[in-house]
């Protein structure tokens, strides 16, 4: 009996998955009607979230550079960004609706402002964690302040900046859905108008799965970007052994240390 009931449950779940998947594939796109279906919603979701993140980064970089250069600027700017973040997103969407209308900007402007709360501190912290001896060496080599910022400090800050981008992008991709309340929001519309208003679970599930998938793929792309952008930070165990110094410190010449001078000195003095 129990086994049969379990079987019934599994069968029900399976039928549900099939039903949802069928709904998803059936509504993916309509030939001849490019604005209908799930595909355009996915594209809209990507457009809104990627543009918001990109604009956020474009604002956060110079702002962060400025805050790292003129330190007194940072506390008030950070407070401002935090206050902006505390405004509920729905309120902000409706607030700027009169100015931007039903264009993409209604979603993009608030969302890019929200990314700042993550991106700005990461840019500033990234620049601040550049070791002092590296910064001073750059000054002593004759880098002008601007060139030092662009050619030395920013590249060294890249891992921290990308770490911020990963958090910001996942948060933004999730938050885009809320913009469906003002008629935007990509996959959010699938959840709100198709699913919630019609009391129909398939669109809600498809919407959630696609949002999670998009966030996952975006994150993977950022990880890949970091791998390609920062070959110097890769900790592959074969070559990247920062412990080398310790090995040499014990007086055991490793293959990489030119052994002759060290050994001779060790023996003779």
């Amino acid at each position: 009996m129990i086994a049969a009931e379990g079987g019934d449950w599994a069968l029900g779940a399976w039928e549900w998955v099939v039903r949802v998947t069928e709904w998803g594939t059936a509504n993916w796109s309509y030939p001849g009607e490019p604005d209908r279906g799930i595909r355009p919603l996915v594209l809209e979701h990507m457009r809104l979230s990627y543009l918001s993140i990109l604009i956020g980064l474009v604002i956060a970089l110079p702002l962060g550079l400025a805050c790292a250069r003129w330190r007194p600027l940072y506390p008030p700017v950070l407070t401002g960004v935090n206050v902006l973040y505390s405004i509920p997103s729905i309120a902000l969407f409706f607030l700027i609706l009169p100015y931007t209308g039903f264009s993409d900007w209604t979603a993009i402007v608030p969302l890019s402002l929200y990314t700042l709360v993550i991106l700005l501190p990461n840019v500033v912290d990234g620049l601040r964690q550049v070791p002092d001896h590296v910064r001073q060496a750059a000054v002593a080599m004759g880098f002008s302040p601007l060139r030092r910022l662009v050619a030395v400090e920013t590249p060294v800050a890249v891992p921290v900046i990308i770490a911020g981008l990963r958090v910001a992008s996942v948060a933004t991709i999730s938050m885009v859905s809320v913009a469906s309340l003002v008629g935007l929001g990509g996959l959010g519309q699938l959840i709100l108008s198709e699913g919630f208003r019609r009391q129909f679970d398939a669109p809600i599930v498809v919407g959630i799965v696609l949002v999670v998938l998009l966030a996952f793929v975006t994150d993977a792309l950022l990880v890949l970007a970091q791998y390609l952008l920062t070959p110097w930070a890769r900790g592959d165990g074969r070559r990247g052994r920062p412990r080398r110094g310790r090995t040499a410190a014990t007086g055991t010449p490793t293959a990489a240390v030119p052994p002759a001078p060290e050994q001779r000195t060790a023996g003779e003095r």
């Binding site: 001896h133 001073q136 060496a137 750059a138 080599m141 004759g142 590249p155 920062t230 110097w232």
Partner: peptide
């Protein structure tokens, strides 16, 4: 900046640029 480019400088802990290879570090100036 121009003065500094004409004077070599070696700092404690080397101050090497972590994002540049050994060769490019040396080629800095």
């Amino acid at each position: 900046s121009r003065l500094r480019r004409s004077i070599g400088y070696v700092i404690q802990q080397a101050g090497l640029f972590p994002h540049r290879t050994v060769l490019d570090n040396i080629a800095t100036v």
